[in-house]
């Protein structure tokens, strides 16, 4: 038995290394490729071109905004629902779990056509409203938000804390904002992280609903240019992480 341990430990390190390589090699390759914009030398020329294109900041900003709206709408919808299910309807949990699988089973293209069909003529002619795009994004990110919130709720004694707060006179708002949400912080941050990562790069919904989002912009660049898309990928990666780090820092201070 005692011999097996170091071997198993070594194996786990090897697997971790393989995992990290699998993740970072494409990133590194993309990064190196993005530096070859000028013949014979490594340079940041491609990055210059990216920033020089006003479309870049415009689409990226738009997508970040949509991601923020998605997070707000998604959390506002899912957090109270999950809490309610935990406290009052534990029997409904399997149903919700099943629902969280839907976005995986139904591809976004079907969602997009569904939205277009339903909302492009009266009485619901709202297809040109960004709210419809956000609604679609909420559907797509629903499983990720729900899983994160679910894990957070599971890791605390929700019923005990709820009853303790109620016996001290707290109503639902106090309970939610002073007790439950502060204890869900990590879960909410990971929901936010995942939602940003999904929404900023999202292509199908944005294209079909015709929004100037970052996903379609990247796809367009990829078709026409060589080095700039690589630079763009690296940049969007860095910016998304940067945005998340910023929000986390803000959350910490609070």
């Amino acid at each position: 038995m005692s011999d097996a341990k170091p071997i198993r430990k070594a194996f786990s390190w090897i697997w971790l290394a393989i995992g990290l390589l699998y993740f970072f090699i494409p990133l590194l390759a993309t990064f190196l490729f993005s530096l070859r914009g000028k013949k014979g030398a490594l340079s940041f020329v491609a990055y210059g071109h990216v920033f020089a294109d006003p479309q870049f900041l415009k689409t990226f900003g738009f997508s970040l905004g949509m991601a923020a709206c998605t997070v707000v709408a998604g959390l506002a919808l899912i957090v109270p629902t999950a809490i309610w299910v935990y406290l009052k309807l534990p029997k409904a949990k399997p149903v919700i779990e099943l629902l969280t699988l839907m976005p995986f089973v139904i591809p976004p293209i079907i969602l997009a056509f569904g939205l277009i069909r339903t909302y492009s003529r009266p009485p619901f002619a709202w297809i040109s409203s960004p709210a419809i795009l956000v609604a679609g994004y909420v559907v797509i990110s629903f499983p990720y938000i729900y899983k994160a919130v679910d894990a957070g709720l599971r890791s605390m004694d929700l019923r005990g804390l709820t009853e303790a707060a109620q016996s001290l006179g707290a109503g639902w708002p106090t309970l939610l904002f002073k007790v439950i949400l502060p204890n869900l912080r990590t879960a909410l941050l990971s929901a936010l992280f995942l939602t940003f990562a999904i929404v900023v790069g999202e292509l199908t919904l944005a294209v079909l609903l015709a929004w100037p989002a970052f996903g379609p912009y990247m796809a367009l660049m990829g078709r026409n240019l060589a080095y700039e898309p690589a630079a763009l990928a690296i940049l969007s990666f860095g910016l998304t992480w940067g945005a998340i780090a910023l929000m986390q820092a803000l959350g910490e201070k609070h």
Binding site: D157, G160, L161, E163, A164, Q166, S167, G169, G171, N183
Partner: peptide, 17 residues
């Protein structure tokens, strides 16, 4: 319960972490 003004102490403390 939040209007009954009855204090409650639980087996597992249920302090706000």
């Amino acid at each position: 319960p939040n209007r009954r003004r009855l204090g409650m102490v639980f087996q597992n403390y249920a302090l706000f972490p």
